[in-house]
Design a protein around this nucleic acid. Structure first.
Lengths: 230, 230
DNA sequence: GTCTATAACAAGATAGAC
DNA sequence: GTCTATCTTGTTATAGAC
């Protein structure tokens, strides 16, 4: 029985993967909002109802796609970080480039996770944890660059006394012992990275510059520098 | 004849507005991707084909909505700027608050313009011009704060020599005579503002902080300060 | 001329019987 | 798993009212 079980389980896992792959292809052609279980089934030459054995609803399939996308960006970021030596500025630069590169290679998956929320879809907790992967990589770089217990970096304006409590959750989880200005500014660095790639992919810099890549590199560099990296 | 003409034109303009309003209401409930001509017609108790007298296609209606949204944020930004005195730091702060406030009041319209592109929709030139409204307000504040011909602000890292040409289009149009570092960083300020509101509205800061408004205020303040405002 | 309504089309989604 | 009947969608052709 054990052998049968595992064989069945293996086939099941394989098919589950195939379904997610087909859904990913669908996503690439139709966008997130128009993703339908039926289209995925058609692509696999299966009947729609058969998919329900593997995913109880369209939302469950969507969740799988979202988690997969978050893990892929997170992996791209972590890989780039790992390959880039020990200098925090280099690491931050490498991560920015990798995240942007991933976005360019997977624009629809990027839109799925960082774009408008899909109407009617409620994100379960799994996706929140997966989303943290990139954040952890980024926070790790800044945590290494800013020694614990240092005063606020002089380049940044002083934060009000209340800020420490406000950013407490992030500090405790990702940047223990770092000053509130630094914590807030790491949030800004993350926001700047995701925001800039989003606005680029969504077409908002069209015609604004002759070489966007260079503006991106400069701005990410400045963002990191001001936070204490390099 | 002139009277008849204008009477007809007035009625026509009124109905056009009513259609856009109905579409806006539809948008609020179903989201951008699910916006259907038929649903708009139903809401107005008209027959779908009648709408084609006013808008040649669903995309044209979408364009009208997008332009309207861009103009509304732009107006909110310009109003806040106008009411906030002459101090650039106050003006930048007021604009950030106003833009964020508009986003909170109109989350679906925000997603329509700054979120994922609607699949299959090609933005015409009208939307690009409308999108520039907020940008012009922001650039105006920084242009007033950074005198023309000044050297690069010392707080920002120096840009490579090639940057001047790269950001030339923005410089010429919005920040004539300002150094490339400043131009790039104004792009960053704009990106930070739009990015932070987007990620907030799309739920990416959920649980991260006890008072997001404060983090927002601090980060926007720092972004502006570093660019030379305040 | 200007508008609205009816009807139809090809897609595609959905529900349910078998 | 299959089949069918019924529902959407954007869009057009056509006919008639003002």
């Amino acid at each position: 029985m054990a052998a049968t079980q595992t064989a069945r389980a293996r086939v099941r896992a394989e098919l589950t993967n195939e379904i997610v792959s087909a859904a990913r292809e669908e996503l690439a052609s139709t966008g997130a909002a128009g993703l339908s279980l039926r289209a995925v089934a058609r692509r696999l030459e299966m009947v729609p109802s058969a998919l329900y054995r593997y995913f109880p609803s369209r939302d469950a399939l969507l969740t799988a796609l979202i988690v997969e996308a978050y893990e892929a960006v997170g992996m791209a970021a972590a890989d780039a970080d790992g390959r880039s030596g020990r200098n925090p500025a280099d690491r931050w630069n490498a991560v920015c480039t990798a995240v942007r590169g991933w976005g360019h290679d997977h624009p629809n998956e990027w839109a799925l996770v960082y774009g408008s929320p899909v109407p009617g879809y409620q994100a379960p907790q799994d996706t929140v944890e997966a989303a943290l992967k990139v954040t952890r990589v980024i926070a790790g770089i800044f945590a290494d660059a800013i020694p614990s217990g240092t005063p606020a970096p002089g380049r940044l304006p002083a934060a009000p006394d209340t800020m420490a409590a406000v950013v407490g959750p992030i500090e405790a989880e990702l940047l223990p012992g770092r000053p509130p200005e630094a914590v807030a500014w790491v949030v800004m660095a993350w926001t700047g990275l995701i925001g800039m790639v989003s606005l680029e992919l969504f077409g908002h810099y069209e015609g604004a510059t002759t070489d966007f890549q260079q503006v991106f590199a400069y701005n990410m560099g400045a963002l990191g520098h001001l936070a204490g990296v390099g």
